[in-house]
Amino acid sequence: MSEGLLGSELFRLILGLVIVLAFSQLNALFLVWLERKVSGHIQLRPGPMEVGPHGLLQTIIDGVKLVGKELIMPLKADRKLFFLAPVLVFTPVLVGFLVLPFGPGLIIHDMNVGVLLVFAFSTITVLAILTGGWASNNKYALLGAVRSVAQNVAYEIPLLLAVMSVVLMVHSLSFSQIVASQKTVWFVFIQPLACLIYLIAATAETNRAPFDIPEAESELVAGFHTEYGGMGFGLFFLAEYTNMFIVCAVATSLFFGGWNGPFGISLGIPGVFWFLIKTYFLIFVIMWVRWTFPRVRFDQLMNFSWKVLIPLSLVNLVITAIVVKII
């Protein structure tokens, strides 16, 4: 028996999962609200204002509405896969929370391969999107699904390469060790290029504008979730925002010092707050980007990945390796 891995940790895992479920849902609802507010204020309008103070409860009402809606399935859709997809899209997202270092010791399961875990499971999202897009039996959905797959193939590589340069520096795949080694200097200052590449690739991974081609509204109506309504759509929606949180949280731990304050100054603020502040700031940046730029075209997106991101991240990785070896 492998008690070391599964034994005593199991209860902690289950407890953690419950907390994570609650947190991720609330967080996603909050992010949806935040997105509306950010977009609103960028566009000189107030955003949701009616339900709750400054519309804070708007997303909850929306959620209730989505739950209450009838689940509509197209006539010739593949019934099983159609309902499987929204569930499938949500599972990998939750796994990511297992290893996120919210604070010193505040981590559900500190694995020594935590970084790998997040990225290993993130690929399942693509399968889910693909399943949903294909099962809808809709050409727009299928086109969106195909785009999603191609985009994922192209952006997984620079994403992992950028992460690898950090891993090379720390000699560890464990989040807590990576964060701990940024006590004074954040890696964003040592690895600015990797950080930039990671953020770009992560935006693409989460299908956020300007890389939102799988759901490109003006082209493919709603892309892979064209046929989804009610809670099916709701799950895709929540998964998108949860995914965004994870991606930004990972960026915070890898490049922005996780729970550490800037330059070792903590100002007496607990680590978990530092972590959340930085994560939400990154999320804000991603939202800001979304509400600023037009969407790139499909082939330009691929070109950008293959011609710019991958070579740059490779060069960055090689240089990092050499420098690490010398020091």
Binding site: I42, L44, R45, W291, T292
Partner: peptide
């Protein structure tokens, strides 16, 4: 790449400035 990035940052500057302007819509 550099010029492209610069143009993007300029664009973000425009939206960022708007964040602090008074709203134009009414409830």
């Amino acid at each position: 790449i550099f010029n492209g990035g610069l143009s993007l940052i300029e664009g973000m500057g425009v939206t960022a400035r708007r964040l602090f302007r008074p709203l134009v819509t009414v409830q």
